[in-house]
Design a protein around this nucleic acid. Structure first.
Lengths: 340, 340
DNA sequence: CTGAAAGCGCTTACAG
DNA sequence: CTGAAAGCGCTTACAG
């Protein structure tokens, strides 16, 4: 198995030099077309396979990108980041690159250990997929390697990141509810919990502001405690006509709860979610929601990291990827809003 | 960025040779402990990072394993194989290896193209995760590389594979229903659809046989057409007391249907699933099911492929990974079966 | 158009 | 205990 065919073998067989074989196989100048063709033919016949390690050592490039996901986002029921990773792998392929997955264990995160992909020079760049601790962000900063934060950002660190436009997505879907005639719209979510939820809330709030609608305590429904564990959602005395839930899973749970309480969705009240994950289609009725564009996020992330590999000084800043509204049946049109 | 520190740099700084540095950093014999320590210290200070490409070229080993997943198993709502891949990556880490994900596009599968990880010598072995076409199996066979089929097997090909023990899992969970006093147990699934479903059916059938229970047409409920699309499940005239569903998703759908028809689970009839995926916990009541042991599958797969990397002639044949029953609330105990 | 020489960073004998 | 030499497979100048 270790008896791999090398360029030298092809060269010997043809009585040429390995330099010529290299040029021919790489379609470089300096070989006659006849010879080039012959070399390629023989290479195919001999089952020649390119040794990328040899090229790597010459170029100082591994042609791999590391994707690091913190362990705590990798539960058996969570697959969002794996989906993103998959799309990244597909996009990397277009550049002749490969993706190496690196689950960041909680110990390594605490002890601020460099990932093995870095200390073994296995990758030309690294995408950190999912929020890591402040301390670990510093560790990442110390890595001499192009790096990119995906799906989160750091307020202080001048680092490149790509995130979903939570703010705009929530803004848009709230606008949609208002267009459908809703005037009493609540937000469901703990706005102190994560920055995504906070941003989604602010998008919702902007929509309210723009339409001259007041926000008050009554319209803020908490969905989880400080540990992120879901709690029973308390309804206000007077029912709003619509609810902007911070994510599909919460919308799903909330919908079930409304059902049990005798409210019908969307007849008695409308619900929208965010993410467009399994819960959006599992809900009854299926949810109108904001789809996070995983493919686009991966595409942008890969483009950004490849840019940085070829030009390490390249800065991209904080980049937003827009989602899009998926219309389903969880929203009732009360009356159509006249054009403003 | 390309100005990486090499062993030579450390050697020069210390006035020794790079051979000595190599020995020291690799904890090999032939360097005094004092020097060894000093070298390690300086290496740390200089931020030395090992160049694995150089080692690769010497050893003829990439220290990567490719994991190939056919595109059609990578839908937005399917994450099972990604979960397996993730576990594989974690297991590979224990061996100092990395996992490279390779989504096999439908075109490549049809045109019988070798994966790029292979033609570029990027991996020391490859795990094919998920059923590929007969033709493509042949293509895989032609790859001169340790390879392993995961979660499917080929009847003809003398190839190494690791699969969940569908047969035994279904056998066990059917036994459990019988222990709970059920005597009229149906199987829900198209037994001509996939080999997993067929094997699960046969496990169910074995349990019936062992308990002297007859199988007849009435107890076989089809759940999908020849294209794999779900169809409405037709209930027999006389209701069985329990249903062995071929997977959790079908159990979930079937449960909803029973609910709508006025049957209560588990009071009116019991249901069990298979897989222990999201649907198992989403179902109401949550499903008793057979958990597919993803971690164990990954562990076995990685061990097998690593064995084959060090010894290419190693054969492991067809290896089964046992699942385990997860007890929840979808089964009613009719009366306890006395010990046989 | 073709090839000899040197080098990428490391390791493996082998010599001292 | 330490190091000079050779080599892994390829590519990049450079010479002919």
């Amino acid at each position: 198995m270790k008896s791999n065919i090398t360029m030298k073998d092809i060269a010997d067989k043809l009585g040429v030099s390995s330099v010529t074989v290299s040029k021919a196989l790489n379609d470089k100048e300096g070989v006659s077309d006849t010879l080039k063709l012959k070399i390629k033919k023989v290479a195919g016949e001999m089952g020649y396979r390119f040794n990328s390690a040899a090229k790597s050592i010459k170029d100082g490039l591994s042609y791999n990108i590391g994707v690091m996901i913190p362990q705590r986002f990798t539960g058996l029921r969570e697959s969002f980041y794996l989906q993103v990773y998959q799309q990244i792998a597909i996009q990397l392929d277009h550049y002749g690159y490969f993706g190496i997955l690196n689950i960041l264990s909680s110990e390594d995160e605490e002890q601020l250990n460099f990932p093995r992909v870095y200390s073994e020079n296995k990758v030309d760049g690294i995408i950190i997929l999912g929020q890591v601790s402040k301390k670990y962000i510093e560790t990442v900063q110390n890595m001499e390697l192009p790096k990119l934060f995906l799906d989160f950002y750091d307020e202080h660190a001048a680092i490149d990141s790509i995130v979903t436009d939570n703010f705009y997505g929530a803004y848009e879907i709230t606008n949609y509810l208002i267009q459908c005639g809703h005037r009493d719209i609540a937000f469901v979510g703990n706005i102190y919990s994560t920055s995504s939820i906070q941003d989604r809330f602010l998008g919702y709030y902007k929509s309210l502001l723009e339409h001259g609608m007041a926000l008050n305590e009554r319209l803020l429904l908490n969905d989880r405690d400080e540990h992120g564990a879901y709690i029973d959602i308390e309804l206000p005395e007077q029912m709003p006509t619509a609810f902007v839930c911070n994510c599909d899973q919460v919308a799903y749970i909330f919908g079930e709860r409304l059902n049990n309480m005798g409210y019908r969705v969307p007849d008695d009240c409308s619900i929208v979610g965010f993410d467009n994950d399994v819960y959006a289609t599992l809900a009854n009725p299926p949810l109108t929601t904001v789809e996070v564009d995983i493919e686009q996020m991966a595409r942008s992330a890969v483009k950004a990291i490849m840019d940085k590999v070829s030009n390490p000084h390249r800065r991209i800043g904080r980049m937003l990827v827009q989602g899009k509204i998926i219309y389903r049946n969880s929203v009732k049109t009360l009356h159509t809003e006249p054009a403003e």
